[in-house]
């Protein structure tokens, strides 16, 4: 019983996102709660699946900005209902601090990335636009974020990204906080130039690369914990 019902609701949520139907997305979200389906599953297997399809259609130029935003609206509508019910341990997928760098105010692209990351289950702290380098680092530290994601459309503002890298380096945070950059004027070459950890050529690639970055940090953290445990038990044996 439960499995079929769950599948139907997941499909309903996904379709609502693909069609940008806010009402149906909200309906589906409510149904999931009423039927006792895990709200986390409803997000990942319903809303996020829909957003994945939307991302692919956008990449194929079949969907354009209006469709993208409509779908995002539907997704956020569903999320608003489901997120309060998600247990905190489920939320531990990762935290990302996101923004458009200082000097630039073009944020449509950044908003699309935010949507895709939220759909993928990450917690996104959106600092908005024209964000000073110090603020990226300060917020990442305060929130314990694993990734700082920066965007810019213009060329003169590329230097702001370097400022963030320099600050992280200065504070010895380079292996605790990873960085990813993107935007109209950004390139793999620039990433290499300033030492960012990843470059995302579009929203889809950004999400994929962020997944990898966060996994590597979490794996490193796990490995360290294990190492500490082993050392502690060894010490106790003496």
């Amino acid at each position: 019983m439960g499995k079929d019902k769950a599948e139907t609701i997941f499909k309903k949520l996904a379709k609502a996102v693909v069609l940008g139907d806010t009402e149906v997305a909200e309906e589906g979200a409510q149904e999931a709660l009423t039927e006792g389906i895990s709200p986390y599953d409803a997000v990942i297997r319903g809303l996020a699946e829909g957003m994945k399809t939307v991302g692919e259609k956008y990449e194929q130029k079949e969907y354009f900005l209006p469709e993208m935003l409509l779908s995002a609206d539907a997704m956020y509508a569903g999320l608003n209902i489901l997120t309060p019910h998600i247990k905190s341990k489920d939320k531990m997928k990762g935290k990302i601090v996101l923004g458009v760098v200082e000097g630039d105010i073009h944020d449509i692209g950044k908003n699309i990335v935010k949507t895709m990351l939220t759909a993928a289950g990450y917690e996104v702290i959106d600092l908005g636009r024209d964000v000073p380098a110090a603020e990226f680092v300060k917020k990442a530290k305060a929130e314990g974020a694993q990734v700082i994601a920066m965007s810019t459309l213009m060329t003169p503002t590329l230097m702001s990204m370097k400022s963030v890298e320099d600050k992280l380096d200065h504070e010895g945070l380079k292996d605790k906080v990873k960085t990813i950059i993107g935007g109209g004027s950004v390139s793999e070459e620039w990433r290499d130039n300033i030492g960012s950890d990843a470059f995302g050529k579009d929203a889809l690639e950004a999400v994929d690369k962020i997944k990898v970055l966060i996994n590597s940090i979490m794996a490193a953290a796990e490995a360290m914990k294990k190492e500490e445990k082993r050392e502690n038990s060894e010490r106790h044996q003496d």
Partner: peptide, 11 residues
């Protein structure tokens, strides 16, 4: 006119 353009290019 050789005016330093940096700050005009930034918000």
């Amino acid at each position: 006119l050789n005016l330093w353009p940096q700050y005009t290019a930034l918000s």
